[in-house]
Design a protein around this nucleic acid. Sequence first.
DNA 1: TTAAGTGCAAATAGTTTGCCAGAGT
DNA 2: ACTCTGGCAAACTATTTGCACTTAA
Lengths: 125, 125
Amino acid sequence: MRNSKAREIILEELKGLTTHPRGDELYDIVRQKLPRISLSTVYRNLNVMRQNGLALELHCGDYNRYDANIMPHNHFLCRRCERVWDVEAGSLPEPASAGALSGFRLEGQYTVFHGLCADCAASTG
Amino acid sequence: MRNSKAREIILEELKGLTTHPRGDELYDIVRQKLPRISLSTVYRNLNVMRQNGLALELHCGDYNRYDANIMPHNHFLCRRCERVWDVEAGSLPEPASAGALSGFRLEGQYTVFHGLCADCAASTG
DNA sequence: TTAAGTGCAAATAGTTTGCCAGAGT
DNA sequence: ACTCTGGCAAACTATTTGCACTTAA
């Protein structure tokens, strides 16, 4: 992985965000600094950065979201309205059996909580 | 949601699996009992079942996976080879601030661990 | 001086939807 | 009857890829 202006700016912009944007949202942001960049370059670099541990791809709901923060990202996903909320990290889970993960290098984790949000729970009873 | 033979069999087959299959994999399995069912019917019913809390859609890696078990499902996703492992549940995370989830109905959760698997960690050093 | 990176356009593929016919209550 | 459901085919859309050119080391 050698240096590239595009990747540098993508990572810089991603680091400045706490919103874990989708690929196309990050594209819109990066384009303000690099107007001629293409969407495929953004996705390509997000993949390169993810493979190299510089960015995290969060699978939550219908879209992939990206983040440059290694902090745990916990979400609540409502099965009815499909909205996604951030949930502050509480006690965090540890991989249960060390044996099962022997030799693995654990770098991070995120938890997806699911159920009904307050609105949907209220309207369902 | 009224009764339907298709939905009944889809749910029955899904309950019999511990592999959290993708939509198309479940389609192949269900087709053995209902040869004329279509892929869209499987997806449609998975969505209906998910919205009604009968099935869980897991977002981990590149595909949506489905499960009828409410037990926590933890996975390890290797950022290099992109393989996914099941991880036995250890201590599980609780939503940190009860206030942030006030009124929410928490029905389940799953955690995605990420990093390098043993093979990729070994070949990288 | 060579392999990685880029822009553009086209392709891929998981998933959804329109439509009309069929089945549950 | 009334409307939820299913099969089929076509559409949708986030993401990836082929290609020819450019750039970093």
